[in-house]
Nucleic acid binder design. Structure first.
Lengths: 284, 284
DNA sequence: TTATTTCTGGAATTTTTTTTTCGATCTGCC
DNA sequence: GGCAGATCGAAAAAAAAATTCCAGAAATAA
């Protein structure tokens, strides 16, 4: 049974309720959004009835008590997180009960759901100030160094690809030939470093961020938490919480944020975005 | 004091916290939206600490106890929900009336919506047969060559990263030093090539796919249409239609599909997915 | 009007949740 | 290596919240 179904039932059976229960029904209908937060006494007080009346109300609709009913709203009302939980529970159940192995498509479907949730979350937790600051940093920098290792290397390489479409000088710290040290060496005041690092925070990325700070370059960090070790030296932090399925973190939110950043930069620079039009015959 | 201010303080003083309190700080930062709903024992369990540690954390920041701190998040909770809604409404308005220039956040929000749509579409258009075939190809191959250029290079490099976690031999055709030709040369029957190419279909990728076909290797193509030039020689095609905003194609669906493919492969190979556990001291 | 049923308020009880306490363990410093 | 101070875990104690119970009030039917 869902919260919606309950509300449906309440309104159907409303007329048959006692005077007191009607008051409670109305209150619940009006405040269903905040119901999870309220304690039985809060509601009782607001309705000017006794807590026991609330319990009776819940029992009237088949719950064991108030807490039982509240659980319904808890699930329904924090859309993202609640779904994540129930989703993760579902996954765990499926995996735990070995009888029905997941098909490839089911696995994929599940993972895509996690990606969606990640994007949802990102979308809701955007910090305008941080984004503006990031775009400004990008805008004013002429030399931009980008670093991200292992899982985050694709992201770093994407950022470089995108930035190549501007007039800026872009340096990808690839570590090719083991030359991390040599590749960051030349960063200096007025330059910008973009460091992308998620738990467990790659050693090389941390090193590069430190060098950037020592050399007084600006530092834009894309990471998973304000408390990331990268955060200390950062001028601007963009945080991304990725969705997770099967203990596997998605990357869709991070890459989407990077793309969005580039769009915003282009807009700011009044560039016409033509991502794929290269000079030569090459394309893709 | 507001929840935001508290988070601010927490991140400022983070470095000075004890090991345990750091864990709690991170948890709180990550789950601040749902914190109101959780009981002290839930949080303690999630952090693998004792409830008393949570209380100590709250007291460390000047609250009388956990409940006192939680009250702060309670206040922040209801407005959040309202803000999201009004925010989305505002976006819609801004889009409807083209006159006002878009802010960075609005641009980002728009683009993320496009990403979501892309994922939606992907999710609905999955072809189980193609996915199964792709997983089988991956499973049986010992040597895997991966190619993707320019915009798709990050995807190719991600696939390589992921596949390195198996026992397979993975070859990224990076074109480093202009050596596309030399890097594909050694592909042969029984090997698998993964080619990722979207409109306008990179010349190098097309070349590599051709070599793979000539050398009788298997070919798995990730592209945007069944009529892609890559399709001709492919054993299996996975098609992805990305979302678009501001004439800018997202990449979230493509990368998510690749991740999902890897999950399915791991499942098929009965690997334990531990994406981040590397051999050495390196991580990320 | 009276008997019967349903409804309500309030206190007692139970359950759940939070806080405190205290001994054990760990850490840094000499 | 040993000491002082900080940190931690476990369980007892306290507080808060929810539920149950019951007596009395209100409503209904005979």
């Amino acid at each position: 049974m869902t919260a919606d179904q309950l509300m449906q039932r309440i309104s159907e059976e409303y007329e048959g309720l006692s005077k007191q229960l009607k008051i409670i029904a109305k209150y619940i209908e009006e405040h269903r959004q905040t119901l999870v937060l309220e304690r039985i006494t809060d509601i009782a007080q607001a309705c000017e009835v006794q807590p026991s009346a609330i319990v009776r109300f819940a029992q009237r609709f088949g719950f064991s008590g108030f807490s039982d009913m509240q659980a319904l709203f808890r699930e329904a009302f924090v859309p993202t997180q609640a779904n994540v939980n129930s989703y993760q529970k579902r996954i765990r159940n499926v995996i735990a009960s070995h009888n029905a192995p997941l098909t490839n498509t089911e696995l994929t479907q599940n993972f895509l759901t996690a990606c969606q949730q990640g994007l949802d979350e990102l979308s809701q937790s955007l910090e305008p100030a941080a984004i503006d600051a990031a775009v400004e940093l990008l805008h004013k920098a002429d030399n931009i160094y980008v670093v991200g290792v292992r899982r985050m290397f694709p992201i770093a390489s994407y950022i470089c690809y995108a930035l190549q479409h501007t007039q800026k000088r872009v340096h990808l710290i690839s570590g090719l030939g083991g030359m991390y040290h040599d590749q960051v060496r030349s960063i200096r005041e007025g330059d910008l470093m973009i460091a992308i690092s998620f738990q467990p925070y790659g050693r090389e990325t941390r090193y590069c961020a430190r060098v950037a700070a020592q050399n007084k370059a600006d530092l834009l960090v894309i990471t998973d938490s304000k408390m990331s070790p990268l955060a200390r030296n950062a001028h601007t932090i963009l945080t991304v919480k990725e969705g997770t399925a099967f203990a596997f973190r998605s990357m869709s939110s991070t890459i989407s944020l990077c793309q969005a950043l580039f769009i915003a930069l282009s807009y700011r620079m009044e560039l016409v975005i033509e991502e794929t039009r290269d000079a030569g015959a090459y394309d893709d």
